[in-house]
Design a protein around this nucleic acid. Sequence first.
DNA 1: CCATAATCGGACCGTGCGGTCCGGTTACCG
DNA 2: CGGTAACCGGACCGCACGGTCCGATTATGG
Lengths: 199, 199
Amino acid sequence: MTSPRPLRADAARNRKLLLAAAADEFDVRGLDVSVADIARRAGVGKGTVFRHFATKDDLVAAIVLDRITALTETGGELLTAADAGAALLEFLSAVAREMQHFDLMHLQRAAEFDPELSQAQERLFRHVHALVERARSSGAVRTDITGADVVALMCAPKHAASSLPDAPPDLWQRYLAIIFDGLRPAGAHPLPQPPPSSP
Amino acid sequence: MTSPRPLRADAARNRKLLLAAAADEFDVRGLDVSVADIARRAGVGKGTVFRHFATKDDLVAAIVLDRITALTETGGELLTAADAGAALLEFLSAVAREMQHFDLMHLQRAAEFDPELSQAQERLFRHVHALVERARSSGAVRTDITGADVVALMCAPKHAASSLPDAPPDLWQRYLAIIFDGLRPAGAHPLPQPPPSSP
DNA sequence: CCATAATCGGACCGTGCGGTCCGGTTACCG
DNA sequence: CGGTAACCGGACCGCACGGTCCGATTATGG
């Protein structure tokens, strides 16, 4: 795809270092760490960053693309699991684990001008819809929610947990459990507002 | 408190214009609109902004303080409502309506160096705890959640809704309903992870 | 081992931000 | 109505960021 020439050895190594450093830094300190910081963390000059990724946005796009792809794969495997409800829960756990500080808003904005990322996003959302559909028809989740609803709520557990200072790193599991209980059919109350149509 | 001298007429007017313009701009375009934009929107020079609010953070603190205070008042009134469960739901609706783009993380960071804001936050959280306690002992919400859990989840509905592009402005009601169903005792599954201790 | 082409890295640039300053203006008070 | 103190606003400053450039360096193929 993007390999008209086999990268030189040190170049390939630096690229990996950069991706790792950037992923780390983004996860810990948010999306607006400076490129200089990332370069320093990778033990590399700032110019090297821009040789590999023309712009900072390209760098975050590369990382997000990796994670989206990984999640899509996970979702694909879970599509054939026996327990559809457990599969959906497992998938949402994977999202929380993988997405750290990236939430949908960032993804949407990044995908807006990157067709590759946009396609990856679409593939992921298609899997979410399928997982939800299976869980719905198996009776594991209520029938009045849609895939788009789950997409919207996907990042909520992680976000809720990290909005508290000094939160233990696994607290998101608690909020995923609460939200997932809200998705179950048992004791469900009718929902106001129609489901969103977009994704 | 902060009135050693009664503000001059035009100064008071400009201050109000500024607060309104800033609140608007923050809600629509997020927390990082430039001070210059806010000034222009208020029909005022940039210097005037800094005369009224020594720093940009002070400006957002003033707005957040207003909203926190309003929410605290709402919470206080709801504490004497007949239906404790409905009161909690109503309160969470008020939060979603009032908080727009401000989530807890911003609040925490702003409160860190502003004792007044920090106290206001504490008062608000105390009311949340009380509302949750009442709802719990009336059987409206499950017994294994705490006030801190609700604090963490407070901003989730709005955040989930606004993570979708082209979402209708009231979509948060749908996600509040889902999450609130997750807080009910009916069909609740045991929760992993202990509740957070912090707020 | 050398020629060469690709890569490296840090000095450098433009921009836009938060924040300061001061001459001109305007509201208050006697 | 005049003196004065407060306020207004925009020119200005320093800084940090994303992004560029080019001389030094290094991996690679013959």
